[in-house]
Design a protein around this nucleic acid. Structure first.
Lengths: 124, 124
DNA sequence: ACTTGACCTAGACAAAGTCCATTGTAGGAT
DNA sequence: ATCCTACAATGGACTTTGTCTAGGTCAAGT
């Protein structure tokens, strides 16, 4: 546990945030000015490997990092402003895929992304 | 309808393919050598706007373009080789999101990506 | 003190996509 | 037939996101 890794972990802790790698880097620099981009990327990669943090790809721009890795959840994304909320759908989406639709695949995970407009974007 | 747009449409037609923009460009160049990358991107963007083609983002690398836009479906992706199959899960995933989990959003769409191993990658 | 190895840094590099100024073209107006 | 205008296409520069590499630093063990 080095100073750099502690800073990255601190940045992700706290709110239910979904930061991009660059945002993590920017906040880390605020606490530890000499931290480099490569170190942030490396540390995020390690946290993902350890299962402490999830990668979320709700758009095709930057990956986002979700510290809420221990409770299974899906994401709800505003198509306009990009706001992201964690949500917990009912039912088991994996079970909804019939054997006939599995084409012999060993299916092990499912990601669900709900898209719509958040209250402020829908009101505007 | 120009020659360039016809060529892009032809490339996407046919099989149930999921090509990246670069693959579309490569195949378009084979038919019309002077077509430029920008034109392929523009044309793909127009086809997406018209609802004739879907953008699929199963990985964080290139977007893929799915000509099967008229029948709702989801995707099953091999985590190892990247193979993509169209699948049709049972049930209505949109309905699985309770009102209490919508946070006031107007939810209009849902994307489901199943991940696993295809038969050849699972066997190897 | 020297070696070793893990970690960090800066910057170069790569892939995917977008933007922009210029050039080309097709159809209508004169 | 020629000109005009609007739209489309082109090539290349640029941006964003992420990875890689070569070298430097530091602490622990011998």
């Amino acid at each position: 546990m080095t100073a750099q890794r502690r800073v990255v972990a601190e940045v992700l802790d706290g709110d239910h945030v979904h930061l991009t790698a660059d945002e993590v880097h920017a906040r880390a620099v605020a606490k530890l000015p000499e931290i480099s981009r490569a170190t942030v990327y490396n540390t995020l990669g390690e946290l993902v490997s350890l299962g402490e943090v999830l990668e979320v790809a709700t758009d095709r721009r930057a990956k986002r990092y979700d510290p809420n890795a221990h409770k299974p959840h899906q994401h709800l994304v505003c198509a306009q402003c990009g706001a992201i909320r964690d949500v917990h759908p009912a039912g088991n989406p994996l079970g909804d895929l019939p054997d006939a639709e599995r084409f012999g695949f060993v299916v092990s995970a499912v990601e669900v992304t709900y898209r719509g407009l958040c209250p402020s974007c829908a009101g505007a």
